[in-house]
């Protein structure tokens, strides 16, 4: 009879090996998706169709959340800035927070819970109802026909959604700061324009959301493709998509921020 300690160590070992194995399977899947992407680009209507469903699915929630986040930023930012008598900097604060961090991160989190979970559920159900098997038997590779177009649609729509989130957020900050509280409209916009740097802020924000798009979509597709073909299997995979991709977004954000903005200021 092994002691509890030995059992505990054994369990940790098991878990570690299983996670590593799954990570290996996931990486292999990701490489396969990239290798089989050619046909999606030769038939862009496949990507456009998925772009429509993933993008449009998330559009409303992204726009509404962006507006509210921007309005809250306007209030909180004004409250802090006016203590130092620099409330004209409100526009800069709102814009930089959104473009650098909140736009890419919050939009990606929303995208993971809205579109990511939908992708996992859809692929998982296609597998459970043998649609993927049927496709294989029709000599059509499901990774090329089903997975790759969804991957590229997710990757392309994420920066667009993040940009819309930021735009709505700036508008929300403007509504609260300028229209409601009465910050000077001219300095709100002009300071924003002069302080937001294209390369440093906008491009980096776009890179972030592109990376998040790759991560969320790849996780969602893998979880769906790997789901046990049962009702519990698919629902478990859907939950895992949201949890794993949210953690991945936050961890990647830390790493990317450290690289992009280190030594600045």
């Amino acid at each position: 009879m092994p002691s509890r300690f030995v059992k505990g160590v054994r369990r940790i070992g098991h878990r570690t090996i299983n996670s590593l194995l799954r990570l290996g399977v996931a990486s292999r899947f990701f490489v396969l998706v990239l290798l089989h992407s050619g046909s999606s680009f030769r038939r862009p209507h496949l990507i456009i169709k998925e772009l429509f469903s993933t993008g449009v699915l998330s559009l409303i929630i992204i726009l509404v959340s962006g507006l509210f986040v921007g309005m809250v930023l306007g209030m909180q930012g004004y409250d802090t800035l006016q203590r130092y008598g620099s409330e004209e900097a409100l526009g800069v604060m709102v814009a930089l927070s959104l473009v650098r961090e909140l736009g890419p991160v919050v939009a990606a989190l929303l995208f993971a819970s809205r579109a990511g979970s939908a992708i996992t559920a859809e692929i998982g159900l296609m597998k459970a109802t043998e649609q993927l098997s049927a496709m294989e038997m029709m000599a059509v590779n499901p990774i090329a026909r089903v997975v790759a177009p969804r991957f590229w649609a997710g990757v392309l729509s994420m920066p667009l959604l993040a940009a819309m989130f930021s735009a709505m957020g700036v508008f929300g900050g403007y509504l609260v700061g300028v229209k409601l509280i009465g910050v000077d409209e001219g300095s709100f916009w002009s300071q924003m324009q002069s302080a937001v740097d294209f390369q440093q802020d906008i491009v980096n924000g776009i890179i972030k959301s592109f990376v998040f798009g790759v991560a969320v979509t790849a996780i969602a597709l893998f979880e769906g493709y790997d789901a046990p073909p049962t009702a519990e299997g698919v629902s478990g995979a859907t939950t895992r998509t949201v949890v794993t991709s949210s953690l991945a977004i936050l961890a990647l954000d830390f790493v990317l921020t450290a690289f992009m903005f280190r030594g600045e200021g």
Binding site: L125, M126, T129, E130, Q131, S133, A134, M135, E136, M137, M138, A139
Partner: peptide
């Protein structure tokens, strides 16, 4: 294998229509 499958048709147990 894919060449061969093009000459096969299979009806799956529950149809497996693309939903």
């Amino acid at each position: 294998l894919y060449q061969m499958r093009r000459r096969m048709g299979m009806l799956f147990q529950f149809g497996a229509l693309f939903t």
